[in-house]
């Protein structure tokens, strides 16, 4: 693992402790405590939703659903994992479930497959390698590849965790990750 990986992903104990205390109060029905959890974690929930959905409106709905679900399922947080870890996983699951529901609901080819959503869309020209470009390029990935890339390379989940969350076999997952990286390199090279 890279040094930055260690730096970026290490949870900060004071924040984690504070969240744990707030989560325990929220479990007892304290909405003000839940609001403080929201204030602390909303930015990360938003980032997960926006990157996975690649659509502002959908990301907004997904984030709200995740928070409502978090409130409803607070009793399942046992305190053995950091509250943030629990919440982020719940958020990912909420988004993935909305994808599955959408596939069931809408039979249109446009939204059901994996090849359609914009791989060939033009990338706006600005400095190559710029972080903005990377965000835009991620948003243009096909959904399957985007999901695995965001979960693995941006959020830092392990293959086994992603396999559990997505129901993908690890071989499929590795292929999707490779596909995402290859497409991103192509898009950023243009």
């Amino acid at each position: 693992m890279s040094l930055s990986g260690a730096i970026v992903r290490s949870p900060s104990p004071p924040l984690a402790d504070e969240s744990a205390e707030l989560a325990r109060r929220a479990q007892a029905g304290d909405v003000a405590a839940f609001e403080r959890l929201y204030r602390t974690h909303a930015g990360h929930v938003r980032a997960i939703c926006l990157r996975l959905c690649a659509d502002g409106q959908r990301a907004e709905e997904a984030a709200q659903d995740a928070w409502v679900r978090a409130w409803e399922r607070l009793s399942t947080w046992r305190g053995d994992a950091a509250f943030g870890t629990w919440l982020h996983r719940l958020t990912v699951n909420a988004v993935l479930e909305s994808f599955r529901a959408e596939r069931r609901r809408i039979a249109r080819v446009m939204l059901s497959g994996d090849e359609e959503d914009g791989v060939d869309a033009p990338i706006s020209a600005s400095e190559p390698g710029d972080a903005l470009d990377l965000e835009r390029a991620i948003a243009r990935l096909p959904r399957g590849a985007r999901t695995v890339f965001v979960l693995h390379d941006v959020e830092g989940y392990r293959h086994s965790e992603i396999a559990t969350m997505t129901g993908l076999a690890e071989g499929t997952l590795r292929a999707q990750l490779c596909r995402a990286r290859r497409l991103l390199m192509e898009m950023l090279d243009r």
Binding site: V8, R46, L134, L184
Partner: peptide, 24 residues
Amino acid sequence: MLVTHAGALPRTMPTPPGEWQQIR
């Protein structure tokens, strides 16, 4: 380098105004 850049992307993004009120 791509993977490094992805790992260094911001962990948080600004939330839409009024989001908490809608959740609440």
